[in-house]
Each structure stands twice: as structure tokens, then as C-alpha cells.
């Protein structure tokens, strides 16, 4: 464990807690893309298949349970909670996320470190995570404005993977033959995808005005 990875995990934890608290307290999911939340639930489900077979540490297992529990709770809230589901904007949240799942699965069948069931799904979860934010960013472009909590959620989500990149650099220089191109490239792509959002988020924060995304 190093400071970059710990910061990344805490930032990631903060992002899901911000979203869960928002939905739980104000009983609204306005501006939140259910598609992105469903993609994240799939990411965690396919990433953490080893949760019951490979015990790494209490921290590792605890965090996996938190990420699985929070992502599935958010999906449940947005689909089934009688009050929250009313604020879900399904007419605007129309990104066909199956167009992301199938290519990521095919790519994971081709590009992986070893062709086993768990390794392919683990690789799939990396590719899917890299693009999972797309429905949310498309929804924001459509609805134009963004409330603070959703903005913070996306910012934290982008920041966590940026911290992980520093973690990978650190581990590359401190651990012999720690080389993993697949997560590195997927993680870099993912962070770049947040790039323009960060740009507008930073400028809105600097000018202390409401975050407006260009049409």
C-alpha cells in the first residue's frame, strides 16, 4: 500500500458515499445516470469475483464489500425506491450502454494477461470502468446544468483513477517487474475521458459560478 493508492481508494469511497448520501437524504436522483450506475455495478461484480476465494487483507475485503454494496444500493434506489425513481430522468438517460458492454467483453477476450474466466472478466471490468462514465457525461451535456453533489461525485470519481496512475508509477519504480499495461492504458484512457469535465469543473469552481457544460 502506498499513499497514492490509499488516496485513490479514499477518493473512490468518497465518490460513492457522496452519491449514496445525496440519493438517500434528498430522496432524489435528478441528474444522475442510472446507466452509469448499472455499469459500475457490473464493473465491481466482475472485478471482485475473487472476494471469497482470495483473501488479501481485511481492508481489501471490506472495501470490496463497500463498493459492491453501494453500487448495487444506488441502482436499487434509482430503479425501485418509490420516491427516488420518480426523479430519474429516463427520457434523457438514453445512452445505449450495451454498446459499451459487448465491445469491452470482446476486447477482453482478445487482450488479457491469461485466457481464464476470471482473468477475462477482470480485464473486462477494467475496460468497462474506463467508459462507464460516458452515459453520465452525455446526460450532463443534455441537461446542461449540474448540481453540486453530482459534480462532486464525478470529480471524485475522476480523481481516484488519477491517484491510481501515480500509484502505478510508484509501484513500477519500487517493485521489480511490476508491469501491467492493460490496467495502465485503461486507467489512463479513463482519466483522459474526465479531462474536459475537469476543465469546466475547475473553471466554474475558480470563478465561483454554477457549473455549465457547453452544449
Amino acid at each position: 500500500m502506498n499513499i497514492f493508492r490509499f488516496a485513490g481508494d479514499m477518493t473512490h469511497l468518497a465518490s460513492v458515499l457522496v452519491l449514496l448520501l445525496k440519493i438517500h437524504t434528498i430522496k432524489s436522483c435528478a441528474g444522475v445516470s442510472l446507466k452509469t450506475q448499472e455499469l459500475y455495478a457490473i464493473v465491481f461484480a466482475t472485478r471482485y469475483l475473487d472476494i471469497f476465494t482470495d483473501f488479501i487483507s481485511l481492508y481489501n475485503t471490506f472495501m470490496k464489500l463497500v463498493f459492491l454494496g453501494s453500487s448495487f444500493s444506488i441502482v436499487w434506489y434509482m430503479r425501485s425506491h418509490k420516491i427516488v425513481r420518480r426523479s430519474y430522468d429516463k427520457d434523457q438517460d438514453t445512452f445505449r450502454h450495451y454498446f459499451l458492454i459487448v465491445p469491452c467483453l470482446l476486447l477482453a477476450m482478445i487482450i488479457n494477461e491469461k485466457f481464464t474466466f476470471r482473468e477475462v472478466l477482470w480485464t473486462f471490468s477494467l475496460f468497462l470502468e474506463a467508459v462507464a462514465i460516458l452515459p453520465q457525461l452525455v446526460l450532463l451535456q443534455r441537461t446542461r446544468n449540474i448540481d453540486n453533489l453530482t459534480g462532486q461525485y464525478i470529480f471524485l470519481l475522476g480523481a481516484y483513477r488519477a491517484f491510481y496512475i501515480f500509484n502505478w508509477i510508484y509501484r513500477y519504480f519500487t517493485e521489480p517487474h511490476y508491469v501491467h499495461w492493460i490496467p495502465w492504458i485503461a486507467g489512463l484512457l479513463q482519466t483522459l475521458l474526465y479531462g474536459d469535465f475537469f476543465y469546466y469543473y475547475f473553471h466554474s469552481w475558480k470563478n465561483n459560478k454554477k457549473l455549465q457544460l457547453p452544449a
Binding site: R5, D9, D50, F67, Y164
Partner: peptide, 10 residues
């Protein structure tokens, strides 16, 4: 072994 080292990450 080599490619398991990253599996300790979330």
C-alpha cells in the same frame, strides 16, 4: 506470481 501483484488493488 508476476501478474497477480496488481490483484491486491481495488
Amino acid at each position: 506470481e508476476r501478474n497477480e501483484s496488481i490483484k491486491d488493488e481495488l
